[in-house]
């Protein structure tokens, strides 16, 4: 891990010094235990502020549409900036999606591929340790040694500490790479849609009740939307006034409309990075619902979002023999 950090810094320095990119998007140390924060390096002399460890959770692709947006002050021709991103498997999949949707110009983005062993979820670590964890590092056999606020040290198992998204990850290593940083990568998960299958097995009324219970926690801060790399719309449907899709209050029906609308908009695009889940201050289990969309596009159209630059996004394409199972025949 430390080795990868050194390589990443060197790669960033080279890219900046050679003028190949103007900005390297990566991580720096955060202000809280078990946290890092997105970091924008524009000068080779500070490339050493980049860090790489098991806390680099944010999906950095979320910043790209904004960084590649043509500034309002520029009139006429504009050439986009050159930007490098230290990308984990999920970040790279999001970037591929954004390239396909023309939000990121392929020629202007440099993907520094960072193989991933799964990132630590601080909330999970705190819950498993029973109190706030102040330090956490990988120990032997994939386990983690943690120190808690009261000074105790404990050993926690990988699945007690590593984020749920990472435990179910099929693509821990980036699918495309412009600069490769060698390093260890976890084995792809074997069972993927376990939670969706379990949920599908429940009765509809029970599912609806659980869905309502989760959504009722929403305070409409829109952190899920803002943290999502796919949510780059200039004006979100929920904030439009013509037409006015939903009320601004916390009427359950309006909360439903927002979440159904936002999640369904991820159909065929969601890479299950869990940025929305991590961002939610109310711990809404959005993953349980978005997983269904990922499962459906894979089962119905054989499509894995962000796996390749070549295939068409599934909802922009069609086949003559697509499923007709949902059609009502009188």
């Amino acid at each position: 891990m430390h080795d990868m950090e050194t390589k990443l810094r060197k790669a960033a320095k080279d890219l900046l010094e050679s003028g190949k990119v103007e900005t390297v998007v990566g991580f720096q140390n955060g202000s809280l235990p078990l946290r890092t924060r997105p970091h924008f390096v524009r000068d080779a002399s500070v490339a050493d502020t980049l860090v790489w460890n098991r806390f680099c959770t944010n999906n950095l692709a979320a910043y790209l549409p904004r960084l590649f947006e043509k500034p309002a002050s520029v009139r006429g021709q504009w050439s986009p900036p050159k930007i490098a991103v230290a990308a984990k498997g999920c970040d790279a999949r999001s970037i591929i999606g954004l390239i396909k949707e023309h939000q990121v110009p392929r020629g202007s983005v440099v993907i520094i591929a960072m193989p991933c062993q799964g990132m630590v979820d601080p909330r999970k670590a705190d819950a498993a340790a029973g109190e706030a964890v102040t330090d956490c590092h990988a120990g032997a056999d994939g386990a983690f040694e943690v120190t808690t606020v009261s000074g105790r040290t404990r050993t926690l198992q990988r699945d007690q500490v590593v984020a749920e998204a990472c435990l179910g990850c099929l693509h821990p290593a980036p699918a495309i790479a412009d600069v490769k940083v060698e390093g260890p990568s976890q084995a792809p998960a074997a069972e993927r849609f376990a939670r969706a299958r379990e949920f599908e097995a429940m009765a509809p009324a029970q599912r609806w009740e659980l869905f309502l219970k989760e959504i009722a926690k929403c305070i409409r801060c829109y952190a899920c939307r803002q943290a999502c790399p796919n949510c780059y719309c200039k004006s979100c449907f929920i904030e439009q006034s013509k037409p006015n899709w939903a009320g601004a209050g916390d009427d359950p029906s309006d909360l439903l409309l927002f979440h159904i609308g936002r999640m369904f908009h991820q159909a065929g695009r969601c890479v299950e990075c869990d940025a929305c889940v991590r961002a939610c201050p109310m711990h809404i289990d959005l993953r349980l619902f978005t997983q269904k969309l990922v499962k459906d596009v894979e089962e119905l159209f054989g499509y894995v979002p962000g796996a390749s630059l070549d295939d068409m996004p599934p909802l922009c394409a069609f086949q003559s023999d697509d499923s007709e199972s949902f059609i009502t025949h009188p």
């Binding site: 969706a196 609806w208 369904f264 909802l315 394409a317 069609f318 003559s320 697509d322 949902f326």
Partner: peptide, 20 residues
């Protein structure tokens, strides 16, 4: 044909959430 893909996803998603 594009609608067909959109609606198969929508119907499946809504019913997954528990819509009757």
């Amino acid at each position: 044909l594009v609608a067909r893909r959109k609606f198969v996803m929508l119907k499946s998603f809504l019913e997954y959430l528990g819509l009757e």
